[in-house]
Design a protein around this nucleic acid. Structure first.
Ligand SMILES: [Mn+2]
Ligand SMILES: [Mn+2]
Ligand SMILES: [Zn+2]
Ligand SMILES: [Zn+2]
Lengths: 140, 140
DNA sequence: TTATAAATTTGTAATGAGTTCAAATATGAA
DNA sequence: TTCATATTTGAACTCATTACAAATTTATAA
């Protein structure tokens, strides 16, 4: 399962140009874009694309476990082309979301205190390395 | 620092009836209500309360570290009268958010890969114990 | 091919949580 | 009381997301 077309077909999703384009964007950038960011980017290549199609496609991907929605910022959903679960760091200053590869003992659990677990989310919030360095420079 | 009035005063927040009422609700129920749920509840006691006051107060509490906003459901913010950081379990079926007291090694960290951490969030998503039992009964 | 059905995309309108803002009200000091 | 300041209120607004029906594309069968 190398290429994106295969991933969609394997999930029973017809790989239309729109859907492929959205998935390709998620795969290439691997930032954690909003629906608006995705729409704006795709629009430059497929000028007729509809915002609704972006939302429809993302929902389809999510329902099939291909994409994970991140509810971190509180203002809009960020989308992650997830291979395996991982932690995130959200910078309150620049809004960037970083992947954190840390091995947390609770990321494998499938049951906790009788509750059946389907998804695990761990994230931190603060000021990212980049923004910290900028602050330092500004003070010197 | 036992009672709610003291908590507010200690934070430099004037303990008005509205603010105290909101905090009292968060403290008594300890579910993780939405702003709408809080508004509806307070309204029965203070019929003149405004939705804006609820949002204003919650923002004030958040800015002073008295309350933590939870971005978990994706549709609305849930509010937690946080004493110490802890994990959560969100039930996709009934919408309930449970506290999970598990000791995760990453909940104490203040810096990761150069990023300065201000908040730590860990939560799981799935079907809660209660809803699982209901399902079982329905099948027998 | 042609006809027809099903799937997909599109655009517009609606939804709803949260915010803005200025007027009204309450509080507190002089 | 008078005046300034803090708080509350309600209406209007924003904006991400959803609903929905029409238009278009794609698949299937005759
Ligand atoms: Mn990620
Ligand atoms: Mn909690
Ligand atoms: Zn940053
Ligand atoms: Zn449940």
């Amino acid at each position: 399962m190398k290429n994106l077309k295969d991933i969609l077909e394997y999930a029973g999703i017809k790989p239309t140009i729109e859907r492929l384009s959205i998935l390709r964007y998620l795969d290439s950038k691997h930032d954690h874009p909003t629906a608006a960011m995705i729409f704006n980017e795709i629009e430059t290549k497929i000028p007729t694309i509809s915002k609704t199609t972006v939302y429809n496609s993302l929902k389809l991907f999510i329902d099939n476990g291909i994409v994970t929605p991140l509810y971190i910022t509180g203002s809009e959903v960020r989308y992650d082309f997830a291979t395996k679960p991982h932690h995130h760091f959200f910078c309150e200053k620049c809004g960037k979301i970083y992947d954190l590869i840390i091995d947390c003992p609770y990321m494998k659990k499938t049951k906790i205190q009788g509750h059946q677990i389907k998804q695990r989310h761990g994230y931190f919030r603060g000021i990212c390395k980049n923004c910290l360095e900028k602050e330092e420079k500004a003070q010197s």
